[in-house]
Design a binder for these strands. Sequence first.
DNA 1: CTAGACTTCAAACGGCTGTTTGAAAATTTT
DNA 2: AAAATTTTCAAACAGCCGTTTGAAGTCTAG
Lengths: 206, 206
Amino acid sequence: MRDNPQFSTRQRILGAAEELFAERGFAAASLRQVTAAAKVNLAAVNYHFGSKNNLIEEVFRRRLDELSQRRLERLADVAQSESTTLETLLDAFITPALELSLDREGGSVFMRVLARAFAEHNSNLRRFLSKNYGYVLKDFAVAFARLLPQLDKEELYWRLDIAVGALTYAMADFGMIQRRSGESERAHRENMAKHLIHFTAAGLRA
Amino acid sequence: MRDNPQFSTRQRILGAAEELFAERGFAAASLRQVTAAAKVNLAAVNYHFGSKNNLIEEVFRRRLDELSQRRLERLADVAQSESTTLETLLDAFITPALELSLDREGGSVFMRVLARAFAEHNSNLRRFLSKNYGYVLKDFAVAFARLLPQLDKEELYWRLDIAVGALTYAMADFGMIQRRSGESERAHRENMAKHLIHFTAAGLRA
DNA sequence: CTAGACTTCAAACGGCTGTTTGAAAATTTT
DNA sequence: AAAATTTTCAAACAGCCGTTTGAAGTCTAG
């Protein structure tokens, strides 16, 4: 999509920006680099998005709208069931991200962009994410609380916070474990998700 | 230290750079911002460090040399003992970082800088860190392997990778949990370390 | 086919970037 | 105290930054 002429200027800019933001960060990736990668005129960014900041927010919006919806759908599927476990709840949170990262070209890149948003102490970006997508985490927290009645509120929040950290770090592929040469990207990521769920469930239950 | 005239130009630059790198990232923090915060002439960075890249590496070196040494000292204390547990091993890894983050002015800031190094996909920086400090993680991995003989090598590495992610994220204070108003910085961080060890030990043992 | 709206384009704006320079100042050595 | 060395300084370098402009090009509705 990044430079495929069959996609619109808007989409090509978003794709190129996503890749360069993941690779170099929001500040270091310049609009000239983005528009060159998208094979688009420099002024197109300000024409279609208004500013670099708006472009950054659109990069998040494009992926997070769908990701949040899928997570909440999965949550609705499992939350009420009597047989729900920590593992199925974690799966409901992780699988949509896993699918996104395997899905279309550029999906895997977005998880790195998302992790960068945590590293950036940028308060505007944090406010944007919290305001627009904070309710997803809140809904999941309620579901986890039902499964972990022995934990008081403070204890639960500490554990969820640590769990989110492990998920963020792993899904962004920040770790040292590289994909083995004979292994497909899909197999690698599914393997990672499996370990992630196992580890995190144990940590929450401890 | 950042602008205290009693410190040397070199130290003032390192202190200011650390703060600004943590706050804005390596690319977005400019040498003009750094030298202004350090109350030092712009050219001093290139005179004392040669380049911005060298300055970045020196910011890491200053803290990591001591941090690595303390971690290995603690590891040596507990590794051979028969009564070693996962918790004492994790404590040996985390406590030096905790002390650093509570210690002198700017120590807590450095953990954020370190976490940024993970978010940056910068291969030069990764190579620098792996080359100079990778042996610390390796030594700890050996000690963990002895305590977790039921895990094969691949399983162990996955879990350690996830554990490092949780530690990195938490120590950098990326999470949503804020220090409570009545709570001291020290109490907050010690509380975090306690939860971190408990959670991670359970994940490793699962 | 033409009028109007939408999109693309090259060029330029002021401002900030890392780095270099050579002279001035401060410090250390003789 | 003089000479030599180290450190600081203001100024300038080329180059990239996000954004704006107004004209040229493309598309669509009447």
